[in-house]
């Protein structure tokens, strides 16, 4: 295995502007019917945006053009990376129960941005923006990314196998660690401190060429892990 890229989050970013066109969000056919939040990006110089619900209940994302609901179950809480136009402010809001938070994010060309919604904070909702320009695209390997949303975990690490071998070390809160691995079926877990206390990341066998995201989130005094294969929505003019 070789470390292919490590990207660091640049933290939560909020600014406001207007986007009036449509965008596509496909979390299955039912979700497609809910409309497109932002315009799709151009064929080249495109950037990718996804929303992830790491809260215990449904989250609603509103843009000037559409509204989508992201369920809280593991099969649906991680949205597709949707192609959007780089250099344009994408605005809206995220709602969790009665709490809302503004969304305003401008992507750079070729950037992959993940907006993660959690129920942390005094107002019951928190957004964390992870920015990544990956360069490890490889159809013979699997790409694993560890997203640390646990402010109480100074150094999260992804470990593998019965001997808890470190796969992605030292990922601070609000940061991403990434690594290319051989497509195998090893047991994966996320540890904070003692690797023998890792929380399992249930991804199943890894496929060559596929990319995976593993999110570490705080849950009271314990921790949870959400793990899913990344999906990219096709460009739609």
């Amino acid at each position: 295995m070789s470390i292919a890229a490590t990207a660091r989050s640049r933290g939560l970013r909020c600014s406001l502007a207007a986007v009036a066109a449509l965008a596509a969000f496909h979390w299955g056919a039912a979700r497609a019917a809910e409309g497109r939040l932002y315009p799709s990006g151009p064929p080249n110089g495109v950037a990718y945006l996804r929303f992830v619900n790491l809260a215990p209940q449904e989250v609603t994302i509103l843009s000037p053009a559409a509204k989508i609901a992201i369920p809280a179950d593991d099969a649906h809480r991680v949205g597709e990376f949707d192609p959007v136009t780089p250099g344009v402010a994408l605005t809206g809001s995220a709602r969790l129960g009665e709490a809302t938070k503004p969304i305003d994010v401008t992507l750079k060309p070729n950037e992959f941005v993940t907006v993660a919604v959690t129920s942390e904070g005094s107002d019951g909702i928190s957004l964390t923006v992870f920015r990544d320009v990956p360069s490890d695209f490889n159809a013979l390997k699997s790409s694993l990314a560890l997203f640390n949303l646990d402010k109480g975990c100074a150094q999260a690490q992804l470990v593998a196998g019965d001997n808890h071998m470190s796969v992605i070390p030292e990922v601070g809160p609000g940061a991403i660690g990434r690594r290319l691995v051989n497509p195998v079926g090893a047991t994966l877990g996320v540890a904070c401190g003692d690797p023998t206390q890792a929380v399992e990341a249930k991804l199943g066998p890894l496929n060559a060429g596929d990319r995976y995201s593993i999110f570490l989130i705080a849950n009271g005094s314990s921790r949870e892990v959400v793990a899913q294969r990344d999906e990219q929505a096709p460009f739609r003019p």
Partner: peptide, 10 residues
Amino acid sequence: QHDFPQGWIY
């Protein structure tokens, strides 16, 4: 284009 669009090509 200045940037090589890796993610999109992939």
